[in-house]
Structure formats: structure tokens, C-alpha cells
Design a protein around this nucleic acid. Structure first.
Length: 306
RNA sequence: GCCGAGGUAGCUCAGUGGUAGAGCGCGGCCCUGAAAAGGCCGGCGUGGGGGGUCCGAUUCCCUCCCUCGGCA
């Protein structure tokens, strides 16, 4: 029996993934699952650039607007949510079509993550305090003693990963470098196809600028103001646009400057996304041109599936 | 026209008589429970033009050009 297909359409932001995924899903009786760390949040459709309402109406979309922006969310939780959706969709004899730009989410789905629950906010907080007091190198030395492999891999300044590695070790008594080898993902079970949409760099940046303008026209300011009144979680508050507009609302910079910052930070983000995707050799690249319509891109994807 | 300040990286600017740095940008990379986050690497340059002093000038002197502020 042939393996069931699970499709991923990834790529840097502003390449038209949502539309292309929609067109493909239509052709193959697929249902779309978001692979995006921000679109899971409610109340931020503009800032997180969710697919337009027209598309949402015409095809089933999953994992959009499912979490309160006041709540934390993470890869592991995403993975569990996504796995449930896959089963649900396959049961209906339909094909899951993931689309989004969060490289880690994709990779954790495709390749897996270690299942042991090892997270403790209090411990984490304590470790961060230590990092601040004695420096990240201090914690890095500590890690070196319990998990030399991890410490060799993590840069002494990368506080996040050092803290995480120590947290896991303290909670489980096992080195994270060992646990990380225990992973089983979709690739072991399904016929996973990954496509990455891409544009010439200059065009990509140009589109990001255009899209940012569009977001403002759609009511970004209003949405951001509303969000900023809430006590946002660490995760949701990291959305590009929020910190920049907060500066504007607080009178620390003008609107034009805030907008320029949003565009710049989005371009930087898109570059990091590309780095992530480039290293995954399973990805099939779809180079798109300025005037390619979503329908045309959807067709190209469809042809590459068979 | 006169007086003052200044012309150094894509931008904002620092510095030095022994051919130049920082932040941002730009490019590349890493990534296993915050990932739109976090971290690492790379200087990408006819030092406004010309002349002079000097072993040696981006640095000192002269001159021209340009920009900004003040006075006319």
C-alpha cells in the first residue's frame, strides 16, 4: 500500500504561499493546515498575515486563530495539534496541505522532536537570572560539565539554548544532546513532499514593502492598538509589527519610521527563513516570477506531485 | 559675498603623521518545547577634487568644489 501524501508549501514571507496552497488544495481535495507560529493566535489576522477571508470561506483551513494571544505556545504543542489534524484529514480521505513560513515547525513535524516533557518556567527563570548575573559563558561552562556534546554545539552567547539544555538536564537527568536523537517524524510514515516558493531577493523585499503598506490599509494600527492593550504572551508579542508600533504609540518614533522598521525587520526575517529552508535538501524549489498567478503556481505544484 | 561647522562604508558617525573603524544596513550561517524568537561570521572603502610639506598624509598646509547654520 502506498504511503499517504502530506504536502508542505513553505517559503519566505510574502511569496504568496496561502494563495498557491489554496489553489493546490482545490485541485487535489486537500485541507490546509497552517504552519505558522503567529497565525495560531486570535485577534491578529492582519499582523500575522492570515489568508484573506475569501479563501478561508472556500476551503477548510486549520490551526488559524486557535489560541489566545495571552497564552504561550510552542513547537511541541504545535506538533501535537498538527498531528491530530493530519489524522482527521486523512480519515476523510483528503490530503493535508501545510503552508506557512515557520521553518522549525515544519522540521519538527517532518523529523520529529523528543517526546519527554521537560519544561519548568520557574527553573527557566532562575537560569536566566543566573545568566544575567554571571554571564552566559558561566552557564555554558556549567553545561559543558553535564553535556559536552550540547555545549560544543551551542555558542557560549546563545543564552536561550544554553538555558534550555540545562533545563532539560536538570529535569530529566539526561543530556539534551542524547534526547534530541530520539525523533520520529512524518517522513518515516508518510509520503512527505515539501515545496518552497521563492522569488528573486530584490523582488521579495519589494513585495514585503508593498504588503506592509497593504497591512496598514487593512487596519493594522487598529489591530495592533487593541492587542497592545492586552497582556500578551512572550510568544505572541514577538510578532513583527507589535514592538515597532508600540514605539509609535508611545511617541518614541514617527509612523513613517515605525513602518520602515517593520519592513526592515520583515526582510531580515525572510532572509533567516531562506537560510532555514536552503539547508533542507528534501525541499523542491519553486522559483516564481512577479506575474505568476496563484493558479499557475498551484498548477505547477500539482504537476510536480505526480 | 562674508563668518562658522563639516565632507571617511549603502546610512549615521568615530578616530589616527605609518594606507581606517563602530552601530545600523547588506550578504552568509546556526537552530529540537519563546522560532516573526535567539545566536554566530563577513568590511562590502579611489577617506570630496587638485597641489604642497614629509621617508610616509585620511590626518598638517594651500586651493577649488559641495553641504549645513549664521550675517548680509
Amino acid at each position: 500500500m502506498p504511503k499517504e501524501k502530506v504536502i508542505f508549501i513553505v517559503g519566505p514571507t510574502a511569496t504568496g504561499k496561502s494563495e498557491a496552497a489554496f489553489c493546490l488544495a482545490r485541485k487535489i481535495k486537500g485541507e490546509i493546515i497552517s504552519c505558522d507560529s503567529m497565525q495560531v493566535y486570535r485577534g491578529m489576522p492582519i499582523i500575522s498575515n492570515q489568508p484573506p477571508a475569501v479563501l478561508l470561506k472556500k476551503a477548510p483551513h486549520h490551526l488559524l486563530s486557535v489560541i489566545s494571544p495571552q497564552k504561550e505556545y510552542n513547537v511541541s504543542q504545535y506538533r501535537q495539534d498538527a498531528l491530530k489534524k493530519i489524522k482527521l484529514i486523512l480519515k476523510k480521505k483528503k490530503t493535508p496541505v501545510f503552508t506557512g513560513g515557520t521553518g522549525l515547525y515544519m522540521s519538527i513535524l517532518v523529523d520529529g522532536i523528543f517526546e519527554i516533557k521537560a519544561q519548568n518556567q520557574a527553573l527557566r527563570k532562575k537560569l536566566y537570572q543566573q545568566a544575567q548575573k554571571y554571564g552566559s559563558d558561566f552557564l555554558h561552562d556549567k553545561l559543558k560539565r553535564v553535556d559536552p556534546a550540547a555545549s560544543a554545539k551551542i555558542h557560549p552567547h546563545d543564552t536561550r539554548r544554553i538555558v534550555r539544555a540545562l533545563e532539560v538536564f536538570k529535569l530529566t537527568g539526561k543530556p539534551i544532546s542524547i534526547l534530541q536523537q530520539q525523533r520520529k517524524g512524518l517522513a518515516d510514515e508518510y509520503d512527505v513532499r515539501i515545496f518552497c516558493l521563492n522569488l528573486a531577493r530584490a523582488k521579495l523585499y519589494q513585495r514585503i514593502g508593498q504588503r506592509t503598506e497593504k497591512m496598514f490599509k487593512q487596519g493594522l494600527l487598529k489591530e495592533a492598538a487593541k492587542l497592545l492593550k492586552l497582556k500578551l504572551s512572550k510568544t505572541s508579542s514577538a510578532a513583527i509589527g507589535l514592538k515597532e508600533l508600540k514605539g509609535y504609540f508611545d511617541g518614541r518614533c514617527g509612523l513613517a519610521e515605525a513602518k520602515a522598521q517593520i519592513i526592515r525587520n520583515t526582510c531580515l526575517y525572510s532572509k533567516r527563513q531562506l537560510t532555514w529552508f536552503r539547508k533542507d535538501k528534501r525541499i523542491r524549489w519553486i522559483n516564481i516570477k512577479e506575474n505568476d498567478t496563484p493558479k499557475k503556481i498551484g498548477e505547477r505544484l500539482w504537476k510536480k506531485l505526480s
